[in-house]
């Protein structure tokens, strides 16, 4: 399935376990490989990310579905991302 870059902008990103990650501000392009290499997120979930910056870039390979929202893999290696253990 093909989609426009601009159609992703403003979509909310959740993990597959339903945790809100952030909102898509921009896409990161690798012109050499001709791929979308990442998504730049703003309005990020402060509980997930332990830094003060405005946003984060998530690798596009973690994205599993794009529709009305965007789903990405739930990373358990990051202790803060794994809310079930709390």
């Amino acid at each position: 399935m093909h989609a426009d870059i601009t159609s992703m902008l403003g979509l909310d990103v959740y993990t597959q376990k339903g945790i809100f990650v952030g909102r898509v501000d921009d896409a990161v392009i690798d012109p050499e490989q001709g791929i979308v290499s990442g998504l730049a997120l703003g309005n990020i979930n402060k509980e997930l990310f332990d830094h003060k910056g405005k946003g984060v870039v998530i690798p596009y390979r973690l994205v599993t579905a794009i529709g009305d929202i965007i789903l990405m893999r739930h990373l358990t290696r990051n202790g803060q991302a794994n809310r079930e253990d709390e």
Binding site: A3, I5, G34, I35, S37, V63
Partner: peptide, 16 residues
């Protein structure tokens, strides 16, 4: 104006 990409692979297909 825009770019079209493959949702599954992330490969950029077209430049609009």
């Amino acid at each position: 104006d825009n770019m079209i990409f493959d949702v599954n692979t992330g490969i950029l297909v077209d430049l609009v």
